[in-house]
């Protein structure tokens, strides 16, 4: 009864790794299909609050009918004191000098108009229908959102969206 006899003399065969590239490519393709590219890494810290029954923005993103603006504490803590209530507005990775100066500089309106002019020509949606999506930190003051809203109203960019994290709806 020596079925499991140890045979010390035979050398261990090497593992065949010829299918390793196939496996890795499979993983690669999975990730390429299942993920979306990161919107730019904002220069402000944003931790979204949670919510339910949201609308998914992916179809709008594919048609580039949505612009994101970020509202949060600046990543550089030394600069926090420069801003109204310590929160800064980041438009395409450019932190606006102060949110207080919002009305005098019309930063948001200017940014939104520029964005709209640069959209690809296949996009037919009027500026009223192009979504401006607020990605605000959970502790950001709501007053700032209304300041920005006011500016968007002035240039007729009337559709907005409030981003939240939706855990139940994926």
């Amino acid at each position: 009864m020596s079925k499991f006899k140890k045979d010390g003399s035979r050398p261990m065969p090497g593992v065949n790794t010829s299918s390793l590239p196939d496996i890795v490519f499979m993983l690669l393709f999975f990730f390429m299909v299942a993920t979306t590219s990161k919107e730019n890494d904002p220069t402000v810290k944003v931790e979204s609050p949670v919510g339910t029954k949201t609308t998914e923005l992916t179809p709008y993103k594919q048609r580039s009918e949505v612009d994101f603006l970020y509202l949060g504490e600046p990543r550089n803590p030394m600069r926090a004191a420069d801003f109204k209530m310590g929160y800064a507005l980041s438009l395409d990775n450019v932190v606006q000098p102060t949110v207080d100066g919002l009305y005098t500089t019309n930063a948001v309106a200017q940014w939104k108009k520029d964005k709209f002019d640069q959209k690809p020509s296949r996009m037919t949606a009027p500026i009223e229908a192009v979504i401006t999506c607020f990605k605000a930190d959970r502790n950001a003051p709501s007053g700032l959102i209304f300041d920005i809203r006011k500016e968007l109203q002035d240039i007729n960019a009337l559709t907005i969206a409030y981003a939240v994290r939706d855990n139940g709806n994926i």
Binding site: T35, S37, T54, E56, V66, C133, L158, T159, A161, A163
Partner: peptide, 20 residues
């Protein structure tokens, strides 16, 4: 691809600002 992409989708509430 793992580093430059993200899994989470953008979820939001779409609202309209009333016209001036």
């Amino acid at each position: 691809f793992l580093v430059t992409t993200t899994m989470d989708k953008d979820q939001a509430y779409i609202r309209n600002i009333p016209k001036k």
